[in-house]
Write a protein that binds this DNA or RNA. Sequence first.
DNA 1: GCCCGAACCGGAACCGGTTCCACAGCGAGG
DNA 2: CCTCGCTGTGGAACCGGTTCCGGTTCGGGC
Lengths: 332, 332
Amino acid sequence: MAVIDDVARLAGVSKATASRALSGRGSVADATRQRVLKAAAALDFRASPAAVSLATGRTGAIGVLAPAIDTWYVSTLLRGIAEAALAHDLDIVLYDLGRGAAMRERVFERFLQRHHIDALISTTFALTHREVSRLASIGIPAVALGDGAAGVRSWCLDDERAGTLATEHLLSLGHRRIVHVGGSTVLDESLFAAERLRERGYQRAMRAAGLEPMPTLLHDPTADASYSHALELLRSPDRPRAVFAATDEIAMGILLAARTLGLRVPFDLSVVGVDDHAYAAAFDLTTVRQDPREHGERVVDWLVADLAAPSGDTTHTLIDPELVPRGSVAPA
Amino acid sequence: MAVIDDVARLAGVSKATASRALSGRGSVADATRQRVLKAAAALDFRASPAAVSLATGRTGAIGVLAPAIDTWYVSTLLRGIAEAALAHDLDIVLYDLGRGAAMRERVFERFLQRHHIDALISTTFALTHREVSRLASIGIPAVALGDGAAGVRSWCLDDERAGTLATEHLLSLGHRRIVHVGGSTVLDESLFAAERLRERGYQRAMRAAGLEPMPTLLHDPTADASYSHALELLRSPDRPRAVFAATDEIAMGILLAARTLGLRVPFDLSVVGVDDHAYAAAFDLTTVRQDPREHGERVVDWLVADLAAPSGDTTHTLIDPELVPRGSVAPA
DNA sequence: GCCCGAACCGGAACCGGTTCCACAGCGAGG
DNA sequence: CCTCGCTGTGGAACCGGTTCCGGTTCGGGC
């Protein structure tokens, strides 16, 4: 495997000049640059990432910190991030926090330390003060997705607004007894704050309509777990006629439970979710849309710009949610 | 940020000895080791990965090459891999091939080259001869998951057997006109070979029962896309009474379409899938189980062992599939 | 008492790039 | 004609570890 000395020798220049010609930094005569480039191509030269990283302090990789990779939101996000990273010649290194926060400290101390990565994307949960300042002290910029944190730039759905939007939609159809089903029984409460915001949005909309919000029912936010919970909920004699689910996965669990119990959606039960999950259309589920794939691409672009020229930007961008009307709701 | 010289100085030893004490290689007097360790702790020393990598040729990272990250199989796999990697102090770096093979060459040439990673896990698609030999020539061991490849160790479901198992189950209930719905219209044909094997298993079972296999219907293997295709399929007057779907995601699309059309499963239609997807239980879907999360953990263990002591093992392990009976099938 | 091997340790080379600094050559301006 | 400054280049230091090589010390066996 050729090293830069081989290239320099073949091109008849010094190692220093070869490096300048290859990296584009510093001034090199045009003819010389061509010779070096040709030599590099002939030898199939590729710079050792370790050596480059040691010399420059740049690794060419960005880290992604995520709980629950096997979730629709995170995996779709990951796809967007991966595509954008590829376009920018960046590696992405993945840190899974698992379902809880048990691994959190460990991941932080072991991996993020000491320049394995140039920048960090954290998703679906807020970084703590300590974590933010730690990142700042070792000089790696971070952005947050799906949940903000003080001191880092972030980009996420306006979850509270999404909650009011969904609730208002049901209210406008004449529903009054609207139940909210949210996530986070199982998950660590520091994760998935989005769902608490959606709950708050629900409560706000209810109060604005002069109604008392009903207590939120908590579920593990996967279709599978919510299915069994939903069975209970819908079996009770005073079952709700309208449900606002914090995520489409929860909503899908409810729809499946309704089908099992022979309830007809939307005549016996109206359901609205949040996400516009890949299956939402097939379920004919009315929902509030967000596009994690695009979010992923967006933040990678931010990060690339920030690596080139640190901006110090720490603004929180809220995306205005958009209701996608489908067939899972009907007038009361 | 402390470097090893600082540690050495504080402990009153040479850099070389500090390195030996910290890494555990070479012989160091016990008292000396303790001094070094204490100094390292006091300075919060952490070795620079780049320097370690440059000196040793080890990166402490394993690559995962996957198409379609946002798929149940791959994302669940990823979770298993990430958990196991964390336990072994390995980083995982993720290369997404996207939906087609367009990026494949690029990913291979740009990233896998030149020791960004110590080892590679490829999933859901077979490596080509060229790729395998390329990996061998730069000395990074690989294992394949979900699809084998000549020359690399692999671990996957016995897909052909899964196909016969599912088909035999339907046959045993008296079904004769069994349609197979498979994946891969959209995806590159080099990816997801598993589905062709499941098709072959179906055909084998049909022939063994003295029946002529019916032509396979191809779908994009996601619930969303299969939903619309399934609508067509089930609307036709001579619609099938039994369907073997190559994946649970396809099966779910069919179940949703059946519901839309007012067909009662399993009385009007029997469906069996493959995967035991997270939602399969909620759909009450009879399926053939596989556990990608466990697969992921398993191959990481292999890889770790192989990095410690190269085995040269290239055996293909087939996992015996297991039928999970649920409520989506009934006698003909 | 002498020799030998093993344990322990330090100096220096090395991994493979990048970059600082010095220097040569050369055209422009005074 | 003599600077001055700019472009192009090479030598060498440097990033931060690991490891080879060789030198001491020490204990055991003859």
